Simulated scan of single mutants.
Amino acid sequence: MPSDNELYDYSPITERAPFSWPGDARVAFYVGLNIEHFRLGTPSTSLNEATAALVPDPLNHGWREYGVRVGIWRVMQALDRHGVRASALLNSAVCEHYPQIIEAGLARDWAWLAHGRDNSTLQAGMAEDDERAYLTDVVETIEKATGRRPRGWLGPALTETFRTPALLAELGLEYVLDWTNDDQPYPLNVPGMLSVPYSVELNDLGLFTMHGMTGPDFVQLVKDQVDQLYADSAVSGRVLALALHPFVIGQPFRTKYLEQALDYVTNHPGVWSATSDEIVEHYLRINSHRRPTT
């Protein structure tokens, strides 16, 4: 059906062919772990807007930087305890500034998705040649550092241009997470490109910093999400994406609530704990006519 967005067609979830995940699982679960670098002196995600325009801004920059110095190591331990391999949403600048994180992720066999150069640079409004060069640098930097070419993309602040998916396809990527409008993967109107579910709702950054929710609130939301998706999946498979930021969920007083949420999901009947790459691989396997072409 036609849509006012030429990137994809309108497709009601009730009118699609049913499918299931490996082992007849009904819900595919992945953790989108945002691993980000923020440039010093550039306003960005802030806890306190009163100082956000100052240079330097120790309050907000320090809050963000806590994630790569401390929070991510705490989150890693929680994921390890529950057998969850992260889908790392990686700023390419992380490869230069925090190589120990790359080493730790490689040891855990994480999936690596491109997440822009840093979270202070948005490519919206870039000219086509500039964006192509920018994306090429991001992808090749991550490939060099991890030994794996990214298959997926999440834009910093979920930003794109209308050309981004096609430019990413040129670079061999297969999916984007930016269009958070579905509970299943679906093909874009770009050869070889899928949209895969991500979440701005089930996302620690928004829940804790914008909506003021507590740890117990977070656990209940995760439980409600998986319970409803499991009920929906009696008809066809669904995807549960949990978006995490180490400078938010990695705070000490939130750790036990992340543990409780992971415990509930990973022990829930019919849930397949996977990476976003594995979700795409299975979806393409059962929809072989949609496999990317060169």
Rank of each mutant, 00 (worst) to 15 (best):
S11H: 14
L40T: 13
R69K: 10
V265P: 00
S288I: 01
L262M: 08
V176R: 01
T45F: 05
G67C: 08
H61I: 05
G206D: 13
L59K: 12
R238V: 01
T51A: 05
G192T: 08
D137H: 10
D217P: 01
A133P: 04
Y175H: 12
P191A: 14
E174P: 00
I101A: 15
G41S: 09
Y175A: 09
A28S: 04
A133D: 12
N91Q: 07
Q260N: 06
S120A: 10
G23Y: 10
L258Y: 05
K144Y: 06
I142W: 03
H245Y: 06
W63I: 12
R132Y: 01
A25E: 06
L154D: 01
I102D: 14
G116A: 07
R39N: 06
L90P: 00
S3W: 15
V222W: 00
V200C: 09
D9R: 15
R148D: 03
F19P: 00
G172M: 05
A52M: 06
S288A: 12
N5V: 14
V219S: 11
P2N: 10
R148E: 13
D277H: 02
F253I: 03
V139F: 00
L240H: 06
T209Y: 00
P56M: 03
L90K: 07
P292N: 07
L40K: 15
P252W: 02
S236V: 06
G32E: 12
V139Y: 00
S199E: 02
L205E: 08
P197A: 08
